[in-house]
């Protein structure tokens, strides 16, 4: 019942190998965190999973019933101008386009957007201008948009990088609630190792020399995990 499995994938930019022999797997209802220092190839890995970049070798296997249009994606600090005229409603609704063949929004699409907005508690922002929201609010709106496009797999690229600690905690609560209620699989990329590990089920660490893949518990007990988590106890 795996939703995604990567078998020994490698990827490169020009001639520099960025990813080497990467393997991991993910099942519905699991949160996999992809961690590693800046430049370790986290974003490249995401691009490979999304099909935005080709791998040099190895393959990525998706569950038979998973289509690209069913993958939700929350880009890393999306470069959206604060003067861009877009209401929250327009942004969330645009997430439903991916799976739809209809040119105009159908009743079902509008229902999906409405439900998702109430799930994330942003109904009151419906008519607000996206660019004028706080960082935390914007992130929740983009998360809602991502959920509208995906019911099975959600990929979050550095979702809390620009959030303050309170907004970060709120964001993690949202994600946890989402996984619990919808049995969705989530891949979360982060360079904030200790925070991310504490909320994940599985960890994939892109190291300089070697990679680690396993459950959070296994990671805590591994040499790599001990080195990066330092003296921290169970979170």
């Amino acid at each position: 019942m795996e939703i995604l499995r990567a078998n020994n994938i490698s990827a490169s930019y020009d001639k520099n190998i960025v990813l080497k022999n990467v393997s991991f797997s993910l099942s519905p209802g699991e949160l996999l965190s992809v961690i590693g220092e800046n430049g370790s190839g986290k974003s490249t890995l995401i691009k490979c999973i999304l099909g935005l970049k080709d791998t040099v070798s190895g393959d990525i296997l998706y569950a038979d019933d998973l289509k690209t249009s069913e993958i939700g994606y929350l880009p890393q600090n999306p470069e959206i101008d604060s003067s861009f005229p877009a209401s929250v409603w327009e942004v969330v609704l645009s997430g439903t386009i991916a799976g739809s063949k209809s040119l105009f929004y159908t009743k079902t699409q509008k229902e999906t957007a409405k439900k998702t907005m109430s799930f994330f508690d942003i109904e009151n922002l419906k008519k607000s201008c996206f660019g004028e929201l706080s960082g935390g609010q914007q992130q929740r709106v983009l998360l809602a948009r991502a959920i509208c496009s995906a019911e099975k797999l959600l990929i979050l690229d550095e979702p809390v990088a620009s959030l303050d600690p309170i907004a970060t905690a709120e964001f993690y609560t949202c994600i946890k609630k989402l996984i619990k209620k919808k049995k969705i699989a989530v891949i979360m990329v982060s360079h904030n190792i200790s925070d991310t590990v504490s909320v994940s089920d599985k960890v994939f660490h892109l190291g300089e020399k070697s990679n680690f893949f396993g459950t959070t518990e296994e990671y805590r007990n591994s040499t790599l995990g001990k080195r990066f988590l330092g003296g921290e106890n169970n979170a």
Binding site: K67, T68, Y73, S94, I97, A98, A150
Partner: peptide, 22 residues
């Protein structure tokens, strides 16, 4: 008018549109 919604989507965030298979 026919492609209005999709034009909004790629104008607002082309990367997202691409990643979700548009």
């Amino acid at each position: 008018i026919l492609f209005y919604n999709r034009i909004f989507s790629i104008t607002f965030d082309e990367r997202f549109a691409k990643a979700t298979g548009q």
